[in-house]
Amino acid sequence: MAHQFQVGESIKPLRTTYKYMSGLKVKRPTTYDEATYNLEPKENFHYRPIWNRDIKIHDETITKVKCEDWEQFRDPAKLYYATYCYSRADFQSRIKGQFETADRYGLFKNMAPSMVDTIREFLPVLRHVIFGESIAYMYIGRAAVGTAIEQCATYQCYDQMGTAQLITRICLELEEQCPTILKDGKQKWIEDEKYQKLRALLENVMVTWDWAEAIVATNLILDAILYPLFFEKMTAVAVKNNDNVYVSFSEFFMEMFEYERNYTTALVKMLLADRPENKDVIASYVNKWLPLVIEAIKPVLAVFDLPQNGGNGEEALQQVIDQYVKSLLVDELQLITALPLETTGEVI
């Protein structure tokens, strides 16, 4: 196999990359760029979908936002298939290590009953919330335009299934103290009054056919409240209950949240820069979904107010909104000037 070239002799390539790469506005295309840019078909479609004759196979008009060139979007994490797998395999190794540590020191087994009682209230329910979002992202992946955008949606969908599976495994660790934790969680999700607004909201997210709206509703609003609330604020509750295993697992959830939040922020920035009309459209998504999400989450806050937790759910929610919603939507992106916090009490 090895060949020795004569001194001074070389075989020069005729070109370094595909011709169409010149259409991507970057200085020097990376492997991510070559693996991603311009894969999506744009023209000369043969047939109309028999399931919806009003749209083309890839159709820019499914969403109300508009963009001159959807292919210019870049994922800030620059994940293409290979780096996605490397990143998530590493992620899974860390999770595995955490389970092993927890097992070695009996952290789940010895978790304070007060903390077990707290977790069983919300975690097995979130398992369904996040799985439901993954179904929404199957649609978003298919309907979105721009290879880099649908690629992010695809990875997010797979991540969400992974997150739902991770929650399942954490709950299984707690089965000794709480044998029916998963069953009860599912029952709460289906029947418990506290969760019905959230479930109604989620089912409506799942049929939100404007894919950009669905991304904003989930990544910038619903998840921007849900994840920090239960995987950041809840860690203080865990500490109060002398627990650190929940704390150590929380970071995994926040990492997944950061991935979706970062790419969505980049997407919104691109759309705002592309044309001014997009601002009103995205603001209308926010104005529609933010009050609904807050209304749906309020009943769930009760878990913070349990006696052992000595917390204040309303306060935690307010902090999360300021830190994760207001800071981005009002301050950084200037999509809206103030939060429409005065909810009408209306639910979806």
């Binding site: 398992r127 369904h128 799985f131 299934m161 739902a164 599976q165 399942t168 495994r169 299984l172 998963l182 599912k186 999700w189 289906i190 019905q196 479930r199 109604a200 089912e203 409506n204 799942m206 049929v207 979806i348």
Partner: peptide
């Protein structure tokens, strides 16, 4: 089963035909 199909549920706030 717990890691996969048990995650799913039958929608009731949106009709099945719409979902």
């Amino acid at each position: 089963n717990l890691l996969t199909r048990d995650l799913d549920w039958e929608p009731s706030y949106v009709p099945f035909e719409e979902m």
